[in-house]
Design a protein around this nucleic acid. Structure first.
Lengths: 343, 343
DNA sequence: CTGAAAGCGCTTACAG
DNA sequence: CTGAAAGCGCTTACAG
C-alpha cells in the first residue's frame, strides 16, 4: 500500500544554486553560515530561493551534522490544565529558536517512555525535556548513549541526577500546609494523587507531612486520602468525606483536585471558606477566577517552559556539563478566598 | 558555537549487518518489508539489532522514500481546555501508527501559520492537521505543492474545500439556543468570541442567530457581546452585564466562557439556574463536575482526534482524493443543572 | 531470498 | 569567498 511521494515541482538546493549561478556548497553556506558568503552572492541566493519557493530539507542535513532542529517533550498528560501552560510556552519558545517540538504523553506510565524515547530517537531529536525526576533507567541510557541532552522540568531538587528546571515541590507542600496550620486548623484532610513514580506528588506530600509534623499535630491515617487526577474523582471522594466526617480544612495535591473539592462543597451546600478551608497547589488557569478564588501556590509554568526551552537548545548546541543547567524557579503563594481562620 | 555531535558508540545499519552476517540491504528489508526476508535471517537480524541497541535513523530513510513518520498538528492554543483532549487523542493515536506529532500553536493568529508550516515542511512532515477551516492561502499552497496531505479538524462543513473531520458548529449553536428558547426565555444575551478568522465561533454564532430568528424573537444589538477566550474575561464581562441589565439566559460560545459566566453569577450572588440560565458549547473536561453542572453540547474531541489521526496516516500512505475523507462527528446535548424553565 | 551499487538532498573539510 | 568531491545512514531498483 506504500506509495512513493513525488517531489513534484518542489525545488531543491540544486535548483536554487543553478538559478543563483553558484554551487550548491555556497547555497548551503548562505543558509548556515551567511557571514562566510559575500553580500551580493548571498542576496542573489536569497532571491533565487524566494523566487523558487525553496524550503530546506533539514533532515538531509541531519544526516551530516546530526542536528534535526527538533526537540522532544514528554509529559504525563496533555489533557489537563496542569501542563497546558508548560507545553504552550515550551513549544512557542522553541519555535523562536527555530526548533520544533515533538510531543508525546506517557499517561503517567513510565514504562511508556521506552517506546516513546525510541520513537523520538528514530527521528533524531537534538534534545529532550521530560516532566519530573522519576524515570526508568532504560530510556535515560538510550538517550545518553546517543549524546542527546536531557532536561527534567517541573520539579526542582538540588541533588537531582539529571539537570532540572522547576520549582521545589517539597516547599510547595509545606507552604500551603503552614498556611492552613497558621489559620488554626487541626482537623485537616490530605487529598493527594498516587505518589508512586511521581516525584512531584511525592515531594509535595512529604513537604506537607513535614510541616504537619513540625507543628506537633498528629494526623490520623484515614485523613490521608489518595485521589485520582481528575475533577470528577476529587469531587466524588470529597462528597464522601463531607458526609462521613468532614474536616475543617482540605489540603489538595494540586489545583485540579482542589477544584473538585470545592465543587463537592457546593454540591453539599457546605460554604467555602466559612465551614471548610481548601487549598490547592499549582495555580492553574482558572483557579483565580473560581468562586471562591482558590488559595494556592503558583508554579510559574510559563517561566519554567521558556527557561527549559532556552536551556535544552543551549545544551544541544554547546555540548554540556549537566550541573550548571539546573535552575530553581521560585513559587508564589496566593491567599485567595478559599481559606479562612478557624473560629 | 556549533558543535558536532559524535555518533559515539551508537551502532548503525552497518554494524547490525556485520553482526548478523548479512548485507545492509537485507537489514533494511527486515525492518521495512519483513515478509521479503527469510525467517531465520530475520531472526538473526533482530537479535543483532537488539544486542547492539540499534535505533533506526528514519531521517536517513526520509531522504530516499520521502516519509519521515512525522505528522504536524497546528492548534490555535494549547493552554486551554478546548483542544486538550483533541491533542492528547490525536498524538496518542499517531503513536499507535508509529508516527510522531510535531505540534505548534498559532495563538489564534493565522498569519503565524506561514512560518510554522515552513518549519514543519523543513522537517519533512508526512501530513498535517489544522484546526478549523479558516486558513490563509499561502501555507495551504506550500503544503499542497509538496504533496503533503492536509486534514482540517474540529469543524465540519459539507462544502469545505479541504477534507475535514469534526462536528457541525452551526448545529451546536442552534441546539443550545433552541434549548433556551424552549425553556421560554426571551431576554437572552450572547457571549461569543471574536469570529474573524475563526470559522468555529462564526458558525456557532450563525447557528444561534438563525435559531433566534426562526423563533421570531428580536435580539437587540447590545445583547450580542464579544468576549475573549478566557475565564477571567468572561467573568468580568458577565459581572458587568449582571450589574447593568441582567438577561434571563446567557448563551456562551464555548464552555470556557460559560465557566466564567457561572463564576460571575456566584460572585454576584445570582443563583444559577434559578435567576439566570447559562449554556456553553463544547463540554470540556470539568464542565460536568461544576456546580451547577453545565448544560452544553458535547464535541466528541477524542473521537475526532482519533479519527483524524487514522485519516491523515491513511492519506499519507495512499495518496489521496480529498472528498471521501471528510467525516461529520455527531454532537451530544447534555441538559445539566445550569438552565431551567422561565417562570 | 540476498547483495552490490547508485542515490536521496544536503554539509563540510579541502583546495584554490 | 567559492567550488568539486566525499560522505552522512539509509532505501531501492537491478542482478543474481
Amino acid at each position: 500500500m506504500k506509495r512513493k511521494r513525488s517531489r513534484k515541482g518542489a525545488p531543491g538546493i540544486v535548483e536554487v544554486a543553478a538559478r543563483a549561478g553558484v554551487s550548491i556548497a555556497t547555497v548551503s553556506r548562505a543558509f548556515n553560515e551567511p557571514e562566510k558568503v559575500r553580500g551580493p552572492t548571498r542576496v542573489r541566493i536569497e532571491e533565487a530561493a524566494n523566487d523558487l519557493g525553496y524550503i530546506r530539507d533539514r533532515m538531509a542535513g541531519t544526516l551530516h551534522n546530526r542536528f534535526s532542529g527538533t526537540i522532544g517533550l514528554i509529559v504525563p498528560t496533555i489533557d489537563n490544565a496542569i501542563f497546558a501552560e508548560l507545553i504552550e510556552s515550551f513549544s512557542a519558545r522553541l519555535l523562536d529558536h527555530d526548533r520544533t517540538t515533538l510531543i508525546a504523553s506517557n499517561g503517567y506510565d513510565l514504562a511508556q517512555e521506552v517506546p516513546i524515547v525510541r520513537s523520538l530517537l528514530e527521528r533524531r531529536i537534538d534534545g529532550i525535556a521530560l516532566v519530573g525526576l522519576d524515570h526508568e533507567e532504560v530510556p535515560l541510557t538510550m538517550l545518553s548513549q546517543r549524546d542527546v541532552p536531557i532536561i527534567s522540568i517541573w520539579n526542582y531538587q538540588q541533588d537531582a541526577t539529571i539537570p532540572c528546571i522547576g520549582s521545589d515541590n517539597h516547599q510547595a507542600g509545606s507552604i500551603v500546609t503552614e498556611h492552613i496550620l497558621n489559620l488554626g486548623h487541626k482537623d485537616i484532610a490530605f487529598l493527594f494523587p498516587e505518589t508512586t513514580n511521581n516525584d512531584r506528588a511525592r515531594n509535595r506530600r512529604e513537604g506537607a507531612m513535614r510541616a504537619i509534623a513540625a507543628s506537633g499535630l498528629n494526623l490520623p491515617e484515614e485523613r490521608i486520602i489518595t485521589c485520582g487526577y481528575n475533577i470528577e474523582t476529587a469531587k466524588r471522594i470529597t462528597r464522601q468525606l463531607l458526609n462521613d466526617n468532614p474536616p475543617t480544612a482540605i489540603i489538595c495535591g494540586n489545583d485540579v483536585i482542589a477544584r473538585g473539592a470545592i465543587y463537592a462543597c457546593h454540591a453539599e451546600n457546605i460554604p467555602v471558606p466559612e465551614k471548610i478551608s481548601i487549598v490547592g497547589i499549582g495555580d492553574f488557569t482558572g483557579s483565580s477566577s473560581m468562586e471562591p478564588g482558590l488559595t494556592t501556590v503558583r508554579f510559574h509554568a510559563r517561566k519554567i517552559g521558556k527557561l527549559a526551552a532556552d536551556v535544552i537548545v543551549n545544551m544541544s548546541e554547546t555540548g554540556f556539563d549537566p550541573s550548571p543547567f539546573s535552575q530553581k524557579v521560585d513559587l508564589s503563594f496566593y491567599d485567595r478566598g478559599s481559606t479562612r481562620r478557624l473560629n
